[in-house]
């Protein structure tokens, strides 16, 4: 049977020194030794942490506006868009009579894949991905975060368009309306 491809020639007699493997062992040890004097790359994790980039996507969280209101209006868009269906919302009326609010807002963090679709789709900018990345849990129930926990994680983000002032006619709404009207005319 003819050989296919190139035949590899192997060195036959490499001498006694090479046959003892000593040069190879010393060469390997020299590489190890060299690494001792190189800069250390290990990050001492619990003490040191990595500087996460600005656009890092960690666990999602709900936010309140500067008036202390839950920004979420239970429109169900995030629940609809969520690829692993990690979000569970139940809506309720809120006292303002204008908007809805979430009665129940659970995110199953074990389902969540931190894709950021909820943040992207949210019309009220009520849900954000935090930089939280080292949360772990001991049970599945523990990792379903309820509304209160999500709000505590998210904190406060001011509402630049002052939606509530326009909708409910409180807190300087007359001035807002007047100035807006003036601008339109």
């Amino acid at each position: 049977m003819p050989l296919i491809g190139k035949q590899v020639s192997r060195p036959r007699n490499r001498g006694l020194l090479a046959a003892s493997y000593l040069p190879s062992i010393l060469k390997g040890m020299w590489i190890t030794l060299r690494h001792i004097f190189r800069p250390k790359v290990t990050m001492q994790y619990p003490e040191q942490t990595w500087q996460l980039p600005e656009n890092y996507r960690g666990l999602p969280a709900l936010v309140k506006d500067d008036g202390g209101r839950v920004k979420c209006v239970a429109c169900f868009l995030c629940q609809y868009v969520c690829p692993p269906k990690a979000i569970e919302i139940e809506a309720q009326e809120i006292t303002s009579g204008v908007e809805k609010g979430p009665k129940l807002f659970n995110i199953n963090m074990l389902r969540c894949i931190m894709c950021g679709y909820c943040e992207e789709v949210c019309p009220e900018q009520a849900i954000f991905l935090t930089k939280e990345s080292t949360t772990i849990g001991l049970s599945r129930a523990e990792m379903i975060f309820p509304k209160e926990k999500l709000l505590a994680m998210g904190g406060v983000r001011p509402d630049p368009i002052k939606k509530w002032a326009r909708l409910t006619g409180v807190a300087g709404s007359r001035e807002t309306r007047a100035s807006e009207g003036g601008a339109v005319r």
Partner: peptide, 15 residues
């Protein structure tokens, strides 16, 4: 122990 993330960071795994 359950670790959320897709994938989790190595730090989370160390946790």
């Amino acid at each position: 122990v359950y670790i959320p993330g897709c994938p989790p960071r190595p730090e989370a795994l160390i946790e």
